[in-house]
Nucleic acid binder design. Sequence first.
DNA 1: TATTGTAGCGAACATGTGTTCGTTTGTCAA
DNA 2: TTGACAAACGAACACATGTTCGCTACAATA
Lengths: 217, 217
Amino acid sequence: MSLSERQERILEFIRAYSEEHGFPPTIREIGSAVGISSTSVVKYNLERLEKKGKLERREDISRGIRLTEEQPTGRRASASADLRAIPKLGRISAGEPIPAAGQQDSPFGDDVLTLTEDLVPTGADLYALQVQGDSMIDALVYDGDWVIVRYQNTAQPRDMIVAWIKDREETTLKYYYPEGDMVRLQPANPAYQPIPVPADQLEIQGKVVAVFRRLAN
Amino acid sequence: MSLSERQERILEFIRAYSEEHGFPPTIREIGSAVGISSTSVVKYNLERLEKKGKLERREDISRGIRLTEEQPTGRRASASADLRAIPKLGRISAGEPIPAAGQQDSPFGDDVLTLTEDLVPTGADLYALQVQGDSMIDALVYDGDWVIVRYQNTAQPRDMIVAWIKDREETTLKYYYPEGDMVRLQPANPAYQPIPVPADQLEIQGKVVAVFRRLAN
DNA sequence: TATTGTAGCGAACATGTGTTCGTTTGTCAA
DNA sequence: TTGACAAACGAACACATGTTCGCTACAATA
């Protein structure tokens, strides 16, 4: 299943040519670059390469060649990783309310946090907030951290949620402990007191699904 | 010098099509996608776009279109974000030594953690380790977290480092406190004792520059 | 020895695809 | 009103480019 020397060169040429021009080469261009006089031989080799999974072709389409994702090159993540652009919606602790789900269609300004799909729940409606203050320090979240939040209106007990307290008009990051018709918002820092809130004064804005922290250099 | 609505759509289509297929569309494909019946009109608009510096064309070459580098679009994290593929080198706590810098050229398996350039120090030689155990819990790092580490052989006091303890043949994540010809490896959890190590028995493997935690769903 | 499969060649063919050209419509300034 | 120009249309046209086909040359097998 290994490649002949010629096939290696073909692959390499396609790669270089695409890089340089922004579009793939024709069969004839490949031929003359690799030293094949007959277009049919190039086609033959392309078919082999396709079978070996090195590239994909679209029949009858000029320059219809696409290289399959290259792992080996390594380190430089191929520009193709599936990305999620997560809008940065500001800071959290004492804050303005967060726009409702969906509302954040076009977060103007390029303020997005981009993560690969595999790092966050798929298909979810996400946003990012930068943490202010240390009230969640025991939950391993500290001032400056970014929390990735999934929009949802409900939560399970012990979830770390973004809560909007209506009468106080503020948003906060806390653990969620429903207790009858009250909800206890529990900080994760013993230095802070739990906040009891009437259930009807609380609006769950989402649940923290990931945390990212950049340390000083 | 602004673009007509049609031209915007043409650009966007070329971008999307190229992304999807790996090669640019033909004039006719552009036409039918944007609602232009005549190939000459597409050509006309492509010429305009070329004059405005939005793309480059190669005459007489099928699909000879290349989009000019896009700055302004910004926000579009999609294909344009600069990515860093950070090799996952395993777990840390009791572990094998970490291969020396550069040695990790081809991290087999697609085990890389991909982050955008702006989230990590630029140009640095990075790797990722998954934390095992809770000895760094006070440093807001817990079991399961991923730490992004920059290769370096030295460290400043109080840095969170990855240390290889020669005589114990193990790797560990600790705070670094040099004290004369000894080094105190300080866990960030009071439940654990600091580890004193002779300076010559310690090899600094890198410094933690970022932390990523994915919470349970 | 006959057979099969891989590689390669070159000519012919059939589309794929960009370009040219004659026209039309509408706006703006002379 | 007339002329210049941007935008658009559609039909030809002409070359760009992938595919097919008949043939060799070899090596491995049956």
